[in-house]
């Protein structure tokens, strides 16, 4: 949590990464992206586009799912990190919040948060101070601190998962699909908190989202992933104004608003992937 100022300096560089599952299934076909220091970068795309795989390739959680980075490089602060194990990466300040929250169900909310500090060696006092910091961002969690996480609501679990990541004192959080299964109001609330964590604590975010609309309102940069390839990139405002993005992801086109359902996916494949 260094200076909150956003810079153009790349904190994380993903260069032409290819990922294969089970030695045969090619999921990422050469993905390149940069995450700027102090910014929120959105990774957008539909189901199966490769968003989660990209995040797991970075955090090195692929191995436990028989996935492998077969080409390309992942560089964090000038260091190649793709051969490190997840815990070494957490110690360097990169932590992932997985899709579907993944709270420890039988642990209390507070115990969940404390597991986030597992890799820290800076003493009890600093950890307790950060626990209070997490509770100021998520007052709801303080009320629920003694409840078993499995019995809390989806929104509270998402807060717990983000708070848990925050407890590791990260410089960068890989946030996978925070809007999943949450009511629109709650989604908005979670994104507001992400924004304030970004601004106040200087934590950079790489955010995988299907909810293009919300994500582009809060992100600074964006990448669109389609079928294992980056098909478009730019600042969030550029992407918001882009005609294709409007048509394919926001459901708005020159002919007026229409349902995403009517935008045949082969059209965007044809236009982008040909």
């Amino acid at each position: 949590m260094l200076d909150a100022a956003r810079t153009d300096e790349a904190l994380l560089e993903v260069n032409n990464v290819e990922v294969i599952y089970n030695h045969v299934i090619l999921v990422l076909k050469g993905v390149s992206l940069n995450v700027r220091k102090g910014g929120i970068t959105a990774l957008l795309g539909g189901n199966g586009a490769g968003k989660t795989t990209t995040l797991k390739a970075i955090s090195n959680l692929l191995h436990s799912e028989r996935g492998e980075v077969t080409k390309g490089s992942i560089v964090y602060k000038g260091e190649r990190v793709q051969d490190l194990d997840p815990s070494a990466l957490v110690k360097r300040g990169v932590i992932q919040v997985m899709e579907g929250r993944h709270c420890f169900q039988h642990l209390t909310v507070e115990e969940n948060l404390m597991t986030g500090a597992y890799t820290r060696r800076d003493g009890r006092g600093a950890v307790d101070a950060d626990l209070e910091m997490v509770y100021t961002y998520f007052p709801r969690l303080k009320e629920r601190r003694r409840s078993q996480a499995g019995y809390t609501s989806g929104g509270e679990q998402q807060m717990t998962a983000v708070g848990r990541a925050l407890m590791s004192r990260p410089e960068m959080i890989l946030l996978d699909e925070p809007s999943m299964g949450l009511a629109p109001q709650l989604v908005e609330q979670i994104f507001e908190i992400v924004k304030s964590i970004n601004e106040n604590e200087g934590v950079s975010f790489l955010l995988a989202e299907q909810n293009t609309n919300v994500a582009l309102r809060y992100a600074h940069q964006g990448y669109i992933l389609e079928n294992g390839r980056i098909v478009m990139e730019g600042t969030a405002s550029e992407l918001r104004e882009n005609a294709d993005v409007k048509e394919f992801y926001l459901g708005v086109s020159d002919e007026g608003r229409k349902s995403f359902r009517d935008v045949r996916s082969y059209r965007r494949r044809k236009r982008w992937l040909a």
């Binding site: 959680l61 997840p86 597992y118």
Partner: peptide, 18 residues
């Protein structure tokens, strides 16, 4: 806590660096 966490969710335990 880490032992109990691991019993609940392997992936999540890995993700926090256990």
């Amino acid at each position: 806590r880490a032992i109990r966490a691991l019993g609940d969710d392997h992936q999540a335990a890995l993700s926090v660096g256990i």
